[in-house]
């Protein structure tokens, strides 16, 4: 009989949670004076814009590390249209979901 100190699924749960929290707290623990330089402030304000833009692209266009164009693309396209027309936030999200779901059922 094999005796493991810790079962892999539990190890995964504990390890993932521990590192996730350490990464989160690290960002909040950097001394403020390190970021007081105007250049650092500028970069710091641009980083989430880059990351969130990349996140939107990856969530809209990729599947299992491949570039794909499927119903999500149409949904996000409708969201862009809604944003250009200055639609309120829930309308943006719901119109995207409805478009994507409709195409999913057709296709």
């Amino acid at each position: 009989m094999e005796i493991n100190l810790i079962e892999p699924f539990w190890l995964a749960v504990i390890g993932t949670s521990l590192f996730a929290f350490l990464l989160k707290i690290l960002g909040h623990s950097i001394p403020k004076k390190w970021l007081s330089n105007p250049r650092a402030l500028k970069i710091n304000s641009l980083i989430p814009i880059a990351l969130l833009s990349a996140l939107v692209a990856v969530q809209s266009f990729t599947q299992d590390s491949r570039i794909v164009a499927d119903q999500r693309l149409a949904g996000v396209g409708v969201a862009v249209l809604a944003l250009i027309l200055r639609a309120p936030f829930p309308v943006v999200v719901i119109s995207a979901a409805a478009t994507s779901a409709a195409l999913f059922h057709i296709g």
């Binding site: 641009l46 939107v56 969530q59 999500r72 949904g75 996000v76 995207a96 478009t99």
Partner: peptide
């Protein structure tokens, strides 16, 4: 995907980001 959630999540992030892109360099970024 049958509920459109796969498009709703990126659409939500896009909706958050959109008003933040106030100048040319942010849009380009």
């Amino acid at each position: 995907a049958a509920w459109g959630l796969d498009a709703a999540v990126p659409a939500a992030f896009l909706g958050l980001l959109w008003p933040r892109l106030t100048n040319k360099s942010e849009r380009l970024l």
